[in-house]
Every structure is written in C-alpha cells, then in structure tokens.
C-alpha cells in the first residue's frame, strides 16, 4: 500500500481533500439557507445570503482543520479539532 506515503500522492491527496472541504461546506450552508427561504419562512434572499456566509466560514474552518492535521505529527492528531 505504498501510494499514500509517496510524497507526490500524499500532496495530491491533501490538495483534493481541502478543495472538497471548502466546496461541501458552501453547498451545505447555501442549501440550508435556501431551504429556510423557500420552504420555511419565505425570507428570500436573506437565508441564502446568510447561509452562504456561514457556509464559507465553516468551509474555511474545515479546510484549516484538515491542513492543521496534516502538519502535526500523528500523535497530536487527537488533540486538535
């Protein structure tokens, strides 16, 4: 099972991970906002706007987290979010 340890593939894996992390949080944030707008309160467009902003924040946070996990030696992984 060599590939993950290979620096090229490890870097590639990290790049792919962080990209999707950002995207997924944006989708979730925007989606929640849109649902609030359309089905719950009819507050178009504010739910979507706020949801996207929070989604962006969450995405940054997740991306930051996974980058942080990458840098630290394996033993410390448990201690940080």
């Amino acid at each position: 099972m060599a590939p993950p340890q290979d620096p090229l593939y490890a870097g590639l894996g990290q790049a792919v991970r962080i990209g999707t992390e950002l995207l997924a949080a944006l989708i979730v944030g925007g989606g929640l906002g849109w649902v609030t707008d359309t089905y719950l309160f009819g507050t178009t467009p504010w739910g979507l706007v706020i949801g996207l902003v929070f989604g962006l924040g969450a995405g940054m946070r997740n991306a930051y987290r996974s980058a942080q996990r990458w840098q630290s030696p394996p033993d410390d992984v448990n201690k940080q979010g």
Partner: peptide, 22 residues
C-alpha cells in the same frame, strides 16, 4: 454555533462528494 453546525453537516457531504467526484 451555526458555523460549527454547518461544518459538521458538511463532513459527510464532503466525504461522499470527494470520492464520487474523483
């Protein structure tokens, strides 16, 4: 709290989307 809720919900989404998209 809202940011963390979204970032938690985003976890399974990103897990699924990443594998599928790649």
């Amino acid at each position: 709290i809202p940011i963390e809720i979204i970032s938690q919900v985003a976890r399974p989404v990103s897990l699924a989307v990443r594998l599928f998209a790649n």
